[in-house]
């Protein structure tokens, strides 16, 4: 895994609303490779297409043109069902706005990705508690999201991204809503995850992340294309 390309793209483009007056080319002919076990940053201003590229890399949407390979396997034309299967097994997502579900507890939020699988609830709970413990959130496991601080929400989101033990973690502007202290905390967690062998891809325009020493490679984007 280490060093080998875990995700490669060949000339992918993403066009929203094709053939309509509001047609938008968010990604234009991008070919790149994400190396396994390394931290890669997609850097660029807002509107550069980094979030769209991240969602393509993470099998959340299909490219309008080109091919995407995950662990050597072409996933471009896979039906949604199989794409979801790959996403479940391979990726963990950390979203810009955390995107936790209000009204349910920390523990339930973390367990949610595994609900549709045949794994027994007890096993999932154990796994979730272990992760929360690693992230110092175990005392807060039964608290609903609304009552958490920003940092706690961030760590809950990270725990949820890790519940399925993914090889690749994708983070979309993870520091956008965090202060400096929490940003550094996040970077520390990501660094630890990378040390344990996980591949990290971060889309960001925050120099604190992009210029950090734990980053192995930076891909700069502007107007949907790689510079």
């Amino acid at each position: 895994m280490e060093g080998k390309a875990v995700i490669s793209t060949r000339g992918i483009s993403k066009i929203f609303n094709p053939g309509r007056p509001d047609e938008l080319t968010a990604i234009d002919n991008v070919s790149l490779e994400i190396a396994g076990g390394k931290v890669t940053v997609l850097r660029g201003p807002s509107g550069s297409g980094k979030t769209t590229l991240l969602s393509l890399l993470g099998c959340m949407s299909r490219p309008s043109m080109g091919r995407i390979l995950v662990n050597g396997r072409d996933v471009t034309k896979l039906p949604e069902r199989f794409l979801t299967e790959i996403r479940r097994r391979t990726f963990g997502f950390i979203f810009q706005q955390f995107n936790l579900i209000r009204g349910i507890t920390v523990l339930e939020n973390v367990m949610l990705p595994l609900y549709p699988l045949e794994t027994p609830l007890g096993t999932i709970k154990k796994q979730a508690r272990r992760l929360l413990d690693d992230l110092d959130l175990l005392p807060r496991q039964n608290v609903t999201i609304q009552k958490l601080s920003g940092g706690e929400q961030q760590r809950t989101a990270i725990a949820r991204a890790l519940i399925n033990d993914p090889d690749i973690i994708l983070a979309d502007e993870p520091t956008a809503h965090l202060d400096t202290h929490l940003s550094l905390e996040l970077i520390a967690i990501l660094r630890e995850l990378n040390r344990s062998g996980k591949t990290i891809v971060i889309a960001t325009h925050d120099p604190m992340v992009a210029e950090n020493e734990f980053v192995h490679s930076v891909i700069t984007m502007r107007d949907g294309a790689v510079q």
Partner: peptide, 18 residues
Amino acid sequence: EEGREIGILKAIGWETSD
């Protein structure tokens, strides 16, 4: 809120049939 919730579920790995 409901729409957001379903979006989150889909994003974290729930499939259409789920």
